[in-house]
Computed example of a mutant assay.
Amino acid sequence: MTTVKANGIALGIESFGDDNAPLVLLAGGTTMLSWPDALCERLAAGGRRVVRYDLRDSGESTTDPKQAPAYTLRDLAADAAALADVLGDGPAHLAGIDVGGMVAQVAVLDHPSAFSALTLVGTRAVAPGPPDDDLPDHDQATMSRLFARPIPDWTDRKAVAEFAAAAAEILGDDPLTGRAVAARIWDRTPGTAPPVQMANQMGMVFSRLDCKPRWRERLPEIKVPTLVVHGRRNRFFPVGNGKAIAREIPGAQLLVLEEAATAIPAAAIDEVAAAMLTLG
Rank of each mutant, 00 (worst) to 15 (best):
A45T: 12
R42D: 13
L43Y: 04
R48N: 07
L23Q: 04
P22K: 05
A27G: 09
T142E: 12
L109I: 11
P136R: 08
V126P: 03
R74A: 15
A78T: 11
L118N: 02
D19W: 11
Y53F: 15
G28M: 00
A104C: 06
P130A: 15
C40S: 12
V51W: 01
G59T: 03
R56K: 11
L25T: 03
D137Q: 13
I97C: 05
T142D: 10
V86Q: 14
G100Q: 03
I97P: 01
S116I: 00
T30P: 15
G29P: 05
G122T: 06
P22V: 06
T119F: 05
A125E: 13
D139I: 09
M32K: 12
V126W: 10
V51P: 00
M32R: 13
G29F: 04
E41M: 13
A44Y: 04
D18I: 10
P65Y: 04
D19I: 13
L73Y: 03
A84E: 03
P130Q: 14
D98C: 14
P36F: 00
L23R: 01
R49M: 06
D37T: 14
A81G: 04
C40F: 08
R42A: 15
S61Q: 04
E41F: 07
G47W: 08
D85H: 14
S144E: 15
T72C: 07
P69C: 07
M102I: 15
V24W: 01
P36G: 02
D54Q: 11
L109A: 07
P112A: 11
A104Q: 01
L120S: 01
S58V: 14
V108R: 02
D133N: 13
L55W: 00
A107H: 04
A68I: 14
L43V: 09
A80G: 08
D85Y: 10
R56N: 06
V103S: 03
L43D: 02
T62E: 09
A84Q: 04
A77W: 04
A68Q: 14
A104M: 03
G17E: 05
